[in-house]
Design a protein around this nucleic acid. Structure first.
Length: 823
DNA sequence: GTTTTGTCCCTTTTT
DNA sequence: GGGACAAAAC
C-alpha cells in the first residue's frame, strides 16, 4: 500500500482568492497539483475512482475563475456525450454561467462541429449525413457484391473493419493504393472497394464515424490556415480517457496543440464568416503564439478499446511526445472499499507490461465479495435477481445497482428472470433504439429531406411502407438518374420517364410529393430558418402521409405495435430536442441522434437496475455491482486468446468491471451455459483465481459442486438461495459486517457432478391469464416449491405476488407469467 | 411483388 | 435459438 506523500506542491498560480480556496478545498496533494499545475503538457494518471472528474472540472473552473482563459478558449474532450453533459454541468455549478462558451464534447461531436463549418472547403455541404456502422456496412455490402469480391474471401464485415482500422491510422484510400501490393488480385479488389466506398460517401455527402476524425485531421493538414484558426482559439485542450484514443485522435490533438504558424494573420472568423473566437484577453500582438496547453487524463489499466484502434502507447509515451510534460499520479481511491480494491489490484497485477500502481482506499475493508456459481445462466440470473431484491430491502435503491456482462447476448437470460421476478431494469445498449429498423426508416425519411444527395437513405424509404416499388423499379430509377445526369432523389420527380406502369408511377409521385411537403416545412425555400419544432412536425408529416403509420396500425403483428410505440417515442425525442435547442435545425437533430451512444441513455432515472456490458460500464459507479459470467471463454473471451495482447485487455476489462463497485461486489458464473441452442460446460475464469481467496465469500462455490459441500446437502432444495435469500436477508438485519461461510476450496474445473447440483432454475414461463391471488393463499412454483402469498401489488398484466417460499425464501413474481399454481 | 419457408451463420467489446 | 438472407411459393 502506498503512503500519501506529504509534500504539498507550490501552487503555480497567483495569490489565492476566496474562489480558489473553494475550488481547492478537500483535494489531496496530488489532486491539488493536477488542478493547479500550469505548463504546456500535463498527464494525470488517474487510477479508478481517484476523483479525476472532480480534478478535471476544478481545473477548468480554476482557469475560468482566475481569468486565465475565456470559456471559448477551452476545449474538453470526453468519451461520451453524457460525460460531456455532466462535466459541463459541474463546471457551471462551480463558476456559473460563464461556462457557456466552452466546447465540452466527444471527439466525434467536436469534429462534426468543425467539419460542418468547413465542409465547403473540400466538396461537402454543411448538411452532410453521418453514417453509423450499420449504414456503412450496408454500403460496403453493396460494393462487395458489385465487385464480386466474395470470391476473394472478402466479407462485408471484414472489409469494413479493415477500412476502419486504416482510417484510424490516418491512411486514406489513395494513400493505401499507393503502397499496396497491386500484383495481388485480392489486394487490388480491396483497393478498388476502398476507393469506391470513399467516392460513394463523397457523392452521398456523408462521413462515416472514422471519417469524422480522420477528415478533420486531413483538413487541418491540407489547410493550415483553417487549422490555425482553431489553434488560436483553443488555448487549453483537455482530454479524458486518453488511454482509449486511437492514432487519428492522437493526431488531432497534436494538430490542435501545435503553435499556429507565425506567418498567418489571426483570423477570428471561419471561412464561412462565423465568428469563432473572442479576442484573447491580453493580446500580445508581436509575441509568437505558443501551442495550446494540453491536459490528458487516463489510466492505462483501463484501456479496453484496443480492438477499435485505441493505442495504449498514446499514454505510455506521452512524455516523449510532449517534452517537458509533467506527470501526476492519483492513487487514492475514493470510491470503493478496500476489499474490492484489493481484489482489483490483485487481478490487474497479473498484467506484466504495466507500470506498478497501487490503489488504496481509506474507506475500510467493507464487505467481502460475494461469489456464486449457478447451474445454468438462469440459475445465475436468479441469484442476481434475489440478491438485488435483498439489497433493495436493505436500503439500496435499484438505481444504485448494476449488472455487467461481457457480451450483449448474455443479457437475455438476466432479462427473462428479471421480468419474472418483477425486478425493474433497464438495458443499456443491446439492440439500440437508433438501430431499430423502424427508427432507421424514420431517420432515412428525414435524411432524404435534409440531404437528398444521400442515395442510401432515399433507396431505403423507396418501398417503406410497401408501395409496389421493387428491385426492378429501383434499378430503372437508378439508371434513369445516371442517364439524365441527375440525382436518385430528383429522378423521382419524373415518374413518367421511367418506363414503369401507371400504378407505380402514381406511387412514386406520391412519395415525391410527401418528401417535398416535408421539405417545405423543414427547409423552407424562402430561406428563413424554421423553428426547431419543425423537426417533429416534418417527421409526423412524413410518417403519416407516406402511409408508414397507417400500415403499422393496420398490421396485426404484435411487434408492429411495439414499432409504433418506438416511433412515438422518436417523435417525442424530436420534440424534446426542440425544447432543448430552440435554434436547432434538422441537421442538428440528425447529428445529435447519430452521435448518441449507449452510455448516453443512462438517465438518472431512479428505480431501475442497470444492465450493461463491461465496456459500457467504463466511467460509471454503483453502490452494488454484479459481474456475471465470470467464465473462461467469456471473460477472457474466447476470441481474445488468439489476439496479441488480447488476454491482457480482457483482464483490464474485468478490472474495470470490479472497480465500478462502491460497497458491494458480486461475482457470479454458471456451470453450464446455453450458446445458440447448445449447452456447453463452462470453466471458472482464470481471473477468479487471481483474487485472494479470503476476499470472496462463496455462497455457492464452484468447489461445492464437486466436493462434499455440506451446504448442498443441507437442504433438499436450493441451498444457495435458502442460505442467503431466506432467513438471513428477510430479517432485515442483513449483511453489513456479518461474516458468513468459511472459505471454500480453490477453484476446480466444473466438468463433473452436474447432477449433484440440486438447484436448477429454469427459464420457464407460463401464461396464467388472470389468476386471482390474495394474501394468505398457498401456491406451488415449478422451481421454488410451495410458498405463501404475503401481498399482491400492481395491476392487470403487471400484478406482482410477494411470496415467502417454504425453502427458497422471499421472492417477487410477475403473476401473469410465473410457473405457479394455486393450492 | 409479396409472403412464407428454409438455411446459415452467429457472438466480443462501440464512437 | 434467433436474426439475416435467400429461395420458393403465393
Amino acid at each position: 500500500m502506498t503512503d500519501a506523500p506529504l509534500i504539498v506542491p507550490a501552487s503555480a498560480s497567483s495569490a489565492s482568492s476566496d474562489g480558489q480556496d473553494e475550488l481547492l478545498a478537500g483535494l489531496n496533494p496530488q489532486q491539488l497539483e493536477a488542478v493547479t499545475y500550469r505548463g504546456s503538457a500535463l498527464l494525470i494518471v488517474a487510477g479508478a475512482g481517484s476523483g479525476k472528474t472532480s480534478v478535471l472540472t476544478r481545473r477548468i473552473a480554476l482557469l475560468l475563475r482566475e481569468r486565465e482563459a475565456w470559456p471559448s478558449q477551452i476545449l474538453a474532450i470526453t468519451f461520451t456525450n453524457k460525460a460531456a453533459g455532466e462535466m459541463r454541468e459541474r463546471v457551471a455549478g462551480l463558476v456559473g454561467d460563464v461556462a457557456r462558451g466552452m466546447w465540452i464534447s466527444t471527439f466525434h461531436s467536436a469534429c462534426v462541429r468543425i467539419l460542418r463549418r468547413e465542409a465547403e472547403q473540400f466538396g461537402f455541404t454543411k448538411s452532410f449525413t453521418i453514417y453509423d456502422s450499420g449504414d456503412s456496412r450496408a454500403l460496403i455490402k453493396r460494393l462487395v457484391k458489385e465487385h464480386e469480391a466474395d470470391a476473394y474471401g472478402f466479407t462485408p464485415g471484414a472489409v469494413q473493419s479493415r477500412i476502419s482500422k486504416l482510417k484510424n491510422e490516418l491512411t486514406d484510400a489513395e494513400g493505401y493504393a499507393r503502397q499496396a501490393n497491386m500484383s495481388d488480385p485480392a489486394e487490388r479488389k480491396f483497393v478498388d472497394i476502398f476507393g469506391d466506398y470513399q467516392r460513394a460517401l463523397q457523392k452521398a455527402n456523408a462521413f462515416d464515424f472514422d471519417d469524422l476524425i480522420a477528415q478533420t485531421v486531413f483538413l487541418f493538414r491540407a489547410f493550415p490556415k483553417v487549422a490555425d484558426t482553431y489553434r488560436r482559439r483553443f488555448r487549453h485542450v483537455l482530454v479524458d480517457e486518453y488511454q482509449d484514443t486511437n492514432h487519428a485522435q492522437y493526431s488531432l490533438i497534436h494538430e490542435l496543440t501545435r503553435p499556429p504558424s507565425t506567418d498567418s494573420a489571426p483570423e477570428p472568423y471561419a471561412s464561412n464568416g462565423m465568428m469563432i473566437f473572442e479576442p484573447a484577453p491580453e493580446a500580445e500582438p508581436d509575441a509568437p503564439m505558443t501551442g495550446a496547453s494540453l491536459t490528458v487524463v487516463g489510466d492505462s489499466d483501463q484501456s479496453i478499446y484496443a480492438f477499435r484502434g485505441a493505442d495504449i502507447r498514446n499514454i505510455s509515451e506521452f512524455e516523449r511526445d510532449f517534452p517537458g510534460a509533467r506527470v501526476v499520479l492519483l492513487e487514492q481511491n475514493y470510491r470503493s472499499t478496500q476489499n474490492i480494491l484489493s481484489a482489483a489490484n490483485a487481478v490487474i497485477g497479473n498484467n506484466f507490461d504495466r507500470k506498478a500502481k497501487n490503489l488504496w482506499s481509506d474507506r475500510g475493508a467493507g464487505d467481502r465479495i460475494v461469489g456464486f456459481t449457478g447451474y445454468s445462466q438462469h440459475d445465475e440470473a436468479q441469484f442476481v435477481a434475489d440478491e438485488v431484491e435483498s439489497l433493495r430491502r436493505s436500503g439500496i435503491p435499484y438505481s444504485e445497482m448494476a449488472v455487467f456482462y461481457r457480451t450483449n447476448s448474455q443479457s437475455r437470460a438476466l432479462e427473462e428472470i428479471f421480468i419474472r421476478s418483477a425486478v425493474p431494469y433497464k438495458i443499456m445498449g443491446g439492440t439500440k433504439f437508433y438501430e431499430r429498423a423502424e427508427i432507421k426508416d424514420a431517420l432515412a425519411y428525414l435524411v432524404a429531406v435534409a440531404n437528398p444527395a444521400d442515395e442510401m437513405a432515399v433507396r431505403r424509404i423507396l418501398n417503406k411502407p410497401r408501395r409496389g416499388i421493387g428491385d426492378v423499379t429501383e434499378t430503372s430509377i437508378a439508371r434513369f438518374a445516371v442517364d439524365a445526369g441527375i440525382s436518385f432523389r430528383d429522378a423521382l420527380r419524373s415518374p413518367g420517364a421511367l418506363g414503369v406502369g401507371p400504378k407505380i408511377q402514381a406511387a412514386i409521385a406520391r412519395l415525391d410529393a410527401v418528401l417535398d411537403e416535408a421539405s417545405a416545412i423543414l427547409l423552407p425555400p424562402s430561406g428563413e430558418v424554421p423553428p426547431a419544432t419543425s423537426v417533429a412536425e416534418g417527421l409526423t408529416v412524413l410518417l403519416n402521409k407516406s402511409g408508414y403509420f397507417e400500415t403499422l396500425r393496420a398490421s396485426r403483428d404484435p411487434q408492429d405495435e411495439a414499432r409504433l410505440e418506438n416511433l412515438d417515442e422518436f417523435i417525442a425525442v424530436a420534440r424534446d430536442f426542440a425544447r432543448n435547442n430552440p435554434d436547432g435545425s434538422i441537421v442538428d437533430f440528425l447529428t445529435e441522434v447519430a452521435l448518441v451512444s449507449d452510455a448516453d441513455d443512462l438517465d438518472d432515472e431512479s428505480g431501475t437496475v442497470s444492465l450493461m456490458t463491461m465496456h459500457t460500464a467504463k466511467g460509471l459507479e454503483y453502490d452494488a455491482v454484479f459481474v456475471t459470467g465470470v467464465e473462461e471463454d467469456l471473460i477472457p473471451h474466447r476470441i481474445s486468446a488468439g489476439e496479441p495482447g488480447g488476454p491482457q485487455e480482457e483482464r483490464r476489462l474485468f478490472y474495470v468491471g470490479l472497480t465500478r463497485a462502491r460497497k458491494r461486489l458480486h461475482l457470479s458464473l454458471a456451470m453450464t451455459r446455453a450458446q445458440f441452442g447448445e449447452v456447453t460446460v463452462a470453466m471458472p475464469s482464470r481471473f477468479l483465481q487471481e483474487i485472494p481467496a479470503e476476499l470472496i465469500d462463496w455462497r455457492q462455490s464452484p468447489g461445492d459442486v464437486n466436493s462434499r459441500g455440506r451446504q448442498s446437502a443441507a437442504v433438499n432444495g436450493r441451498p444457495g438461495f435458502q442460505k442467503y435469500g431466506g432467513q438471513g436477508a428477510s430479517t432485515g438485519r442483513d449483511r453489513f459486517g456479518v461474516q458468513a461461510l468459511p472459505k471454500r476450496d480453490s477453484l476446480k474445473p466444473l466438468s463433473t457432478a452436474m447432477d449433484r447440483f440440486p438447484n436448477k432454475v429454469t427459464g420457464k414461463v407460463r401464461d396464467n391469464g388472470d389468476l386471482e391471488l390474495t394474501a394468505g393463499d398457498r401456491i406451488r412454483h415449478d422451481d421454488f416449491g410451495e410458498g405463501r402469498i404475503e401481498a399482491v401489488t400492481g395491476e392487470g398484466a403487471k400484478r406482482i405476488a410477494h411470496v415467502r417460499f417454504d425453502t427458497a425464501g422471499q421472492k417477487k413474481l410477475l403473476i401473469k407469467i410465473a410457473p405457479i399454481s394455486k393450492l
